[in-house]
Design a protein around this nucleic acid. Structure first.
Lengths: 204, 204
DNA sequence: TTGATTACTGATATTATTATCAGTAATATT
DNA sequence: AATATTACTGATAATAATATCAGTAATCAA
């Protein structure tokens, strides 16, 4: 993607800003006024360049007919994720990110099959799941033996390593001070709510 | 917030759709055409109602001057987070979420002062930070003694519990098999990159 | 130093868009 | 049954906004 000059970048940024703060893109007159240009043609020139370089699509004859392109928004969108930084060169400010490993987003969990559970207690501490953590759970009603999942026993949700045999389910805590819980499937209301696929912790 | 009639809802949805897929809001003529109204005044009436009910703000004399209100977009936005479920009643499918504790979003970290670091090694395992985890770091260049942060020593980023005295920094691992690292500030290139404020783990 | 690109001014025709008036008809609400 | 609200048609004036022409000037690379 062709790089923008600083003036082009400023105009592009302003369009984005209008869109996020005001909800609609600016007219050429508005852009001109904002930057102090007396002629809308100045803006027209710039917009044509932005379009030529692939940052926007202009719909001819359309008021405020500026669309930010997928490509441009995709690279901007990372502003909404957390950049993952690999190595950091000496003296380089973090903000001048060069060797980016990607972006961390929860979007991978965004579909409706996922939910989060606020973990209470330390029964899974040896599995790295702490009191107060949020586990991210994919809803599913079967689970492979030995996987960590969310079981609902008598209406109460619990995170454990789960094994199911014909007649009973065994919920293994990951904490040496706790004992496995055996659930008789013929007697007790039991079901699998989902599998633990992620963890999120807020550290103070 | 006043409820919308189905026609009003349809128009509101169409405006949202235009905004997300096309990048700009529709004109009254476009809305009329989409729904098969021959007069733009039909749309004008509807928009006035939407504005009166607080779903949009209309800027008079402005082409495509429709803004979706905060309130309306906020309630939509929850679709993009992961629902946090507290207790789960027996027999209730997860999808029929009733007792919702809120939504888990990374948005709290979205400002540009944050970045993520992919943790390598198990030197912080006793602090619940595992090999392969992502720590979320708020960029700051000072840190209180004893806090977990990211230090950059000779260009290499490392997550440790940090204490700084006049002449040296001490980086404490949280693993009984590792020893603290002492850094002579007069000799070694050292700086604080930020403070660890969150953790994200992908579990397979 | 020549030419291409970038960055503007100023003016104007043309079209896109809003705003508003004067109605009609169907659907709720009291 | 009367009244308000919702949901439209159709027309038109006023204005917002784009598009385009004809230029000037500065910057940058060949």
């Amino acid at each position: 993607m062709d790089k923008l000059t600083s003036k082009q970048q400023n105009i592009y940024d302003y369009i984005r800003e209008c869109l996020t703060t005001g909800g609609y893109t600016p007219t050429m007159r508005e852009i001109a006024d904002y930057f102090g240009y007396s002629s809308t043609n100045t803006v027209n020139d710039h917009l044509q360049t932005l379009a030529k370089k692939g940052y926007i699509i202009k719909k001819p004859g359309t008021a405020r007919g500026i669309m930010l392109t997928e490509a441009a928004t995709a690279s901007e969108k990372h502003n909404q994720g957390v950049p993952i930084i690999g190595r950091v060169a000496a003296g380089t400010p973090i903000s001048a990110i060069e060797n980016l490993d990607g972006y961390l987003e929860l979007s991978e969990f965004y579909d409706e099959r996922h939910f989060a559970l606020h973990v209470k207690g330390d029964s899974m501490i040896d599995a790295g799941i702490w009191d107060g953590d949020f586990v991210i759970v994919r809803e599913q009603h079967v689970i492979h033996n030995g996987e960590i999942g969310v079981a609902i026993v008598e209406g109460e949700a619990t995170v454990k390593r789960i094994t199911i045999t014909q007649a009973e389910a065994i919920l293994y805590p990951e904490n040496e001070y706790y004992s496995p819980i055996r659930v008789d499937l013929n007697v007790t209301d039991f079901r699998i709510a989902g599998k633990v696929v992620g963890l999120h912790r807020v550290i103070r």
